[in-house]
């Protein structure tokens, strides 16, 4: 199990945010999701270790073979890489 933390908000389908606690683009992307007021689940992969971290990386890799952060997965069907305001707005219909 990947230990996500849930953020409450408007339901736009399941949004999974994979990031790093020190990454500035991850911070900006979360700030944008917070501003948009959508519900999402986030995990900081650098704060995980061992099997948990491997599990999270396997999931990141599935969406993003470059293994970069942030990787945000929308409804298990599309993803946005890096801090990309236009694409995130489009993905949540705002």
């Amino acid at each position: 199990m990947i230990p996500f933390t849930h953020v409450d908000g408007k339901n736009c389908g399941r949004i999974e945010f994979y990031g790093l606690s020190t990454c500035i683009w991850c911070r900006k992307t979360r700030q944008l999701l917070d501003r948009l007021g959508v519900a999402y689940d986030y995990v900081y992969v650098d704060l995980l270790s061992g099997a948990e971290q491997e599990k999270a990386m396997a999931e990141v890799r599935r969406w993003n073979p470059n293994e970069s952060f942030p990787t945000v997965v929308f409804a298990g069907s599309s993803c946005v890489l890096g801090f990309d305001e236009a694409k995130i707005r489009a993905a949540v219909g705002q």
Partner: peptide, 23 residues
């Protein structure tokens, strides 16, 4: 913020690992 992260990574890893990549 990035410099703060570099210092944080210095404490965590012993070197300035890039803040935006998984060390």
């Amino acid at each position: 913020e990035l410099v703060r992260s570099l210092l944080l990574n210095q404490e965590r890893y012993g070197y300035w690992a890039c803040p935006c990549r998984l060390a």
